[in-house]
Write a protein that binds this DNA or RNA. Structure first.
Lengths: 223, 223
DNA sequence: TCAAGAAGATTGTCTGACATTCTTGCAATC
DNA sequence: GATTGCAAGAATGTCAGACAATCTTCTTGA
């Protein structure tokens, strides 16, 4: 196979990236849950036309990151605790499975990668930047999910985590949550490094349950 | 609150249904995997404009039912066996969990519903209509997933099953597959009816594994 | 005070257009 | 004869503008 010579000096602004911009805006909490997104406003803000914007919105709708009510347009859904719970439960199912598999098959190289991401989270945890904490933690999971040998597991997981990013940002701000999160993640890492499937599953389960509890607290506090 | 009088004699063709039409077309195998979907053709076939069609296509892309390659347009992806395997594995994870939960909490009414859908599959199984078989089987799962108490589990499951509908239609055509499928599903039903969580999980797992094996056979045979 | 109605805002959808990027067929060359 | 190069056609990516249907909000009248 010849090498990929598709260098493409000036990559004509593929505004497929519009979706990414919007997604990022939602992640970082730029839009309040429940708030409506006005098409014309977004068009001018993003510098694209309405048809293009609407395409992007449809993608986000399918990802459940926004809702589109007929004749009312798109809005950021306010996640109920009921749904959030359901997401955490499925997340547990997926992460536990992934961690278990990962422990049995991860390569030394990827293991180093995982360790590096843990360090990145450690650094973020000692800061007060909760966005950085959420991002680095997400990296950590991503590596596990990417190495579990099942691409669908990873794909589904990413979709679910995206939907609770709002909660995660808040619960990370809880007193001491980042530090205990770090301890739990280290436990997961150690288990995987040791190739201990059972332990990896157990540590992973514990971590998700704690994260869920933290989310519940931060929600009840209305932080 | 006044009663809803929004009777709407002539329901202005909400072409949100366009997505459903296209989805159904893909399910029923109207488009060959790998074949390209030409926008202008679809527009005339569906009787809608290009912007509207493109919105619908974006939705389907996000659901992974079609792929959109820049400057090449949409096409039905040819599912590799690798990805199909991954989907079956996650499906197992979800269905087993759902069946187990369902056994513990299903209401008598819903149980009757489940029994009815099993009868529907039984009837389809004795016919040669593999599309009806796939559809009625999907109903059966839907009821289980809808009663497991976790809406996300249901949602994710639906998305995955949609992606392998192609395989399912084929493997149902295998000699005797419909009948053994029926036996497996009956086993699941009995376990749930008995409120036996363990048995429900076991039966569910067995069913998915058999379905996966059947899919593999039908793929290797290139049916 | 409260309800009906009108004005404004917003969405759903279409037409038409044009530049860019494939695809394909034909001709020229080795 | 096979390969290369090119040109015509097809298809996509994107936009502007338009208009009806619907929702929201504000005004006005009872």
């Amino acid at each position: 196979m010849p090498p990929d010579l598709n260098l493409r000096i000036s990559p004509r602004t593929v505004q497929r990236e519009t979706v990414d911009k919007l997604r990022l805006a939602i992640f970082s909490g730029l839009f309040q849950p429940g708030s409506r997104l006005i098409e014309s406003q977004l068009c001018t803000q993003l510098g694209i036309s309405r048809p293009s914007l609407r395409e992007a919105l449809r993608s986000l709708e399918a990802e459940r990151l926004i809702e589109i009510v007929p004749n009312r347009g798109p809005s950021v859904p306010a996640l109920s605790w009921e749904v959030a719970t359901a997401i955490y439960e499925v997340r547990e199912l997926l992460e536990v499975e992934a961690a278990g598999r990962c422990a049995l098959r991860i390569s030394p190289e990827q293991l180093r990668e995982l360790e590096k991401s843990l360090s990145a989270f450690e650094e973020a945890a000692s800061s007060n930047d909760s966005l950085a904490q959420v991002m680095t933690a997400a990296d950590f999971y991503s590596i596990i999910l990417a190495n579990c040998g099942n691409p669908i597991l990873e794909e589904v997981h990413r979709g679910l985590v995206a939907r609770i990013s709002f909660f995660r940002g808040r619960s990370m701000s809880l007193e001491g949550r980042a530090q205990s999160s770090l301890a739990e993640m280290r436990e997961i890492f150690e288990s995987i490094a040791a190739g201990d499937e059972k332990a990896a599953r157990k540590a992973s389960k514990h971590h998700v349950l704690r994260a869920k509890a933290a989310a519940k607290i931060s929600m009840d506090n209305g932080i």
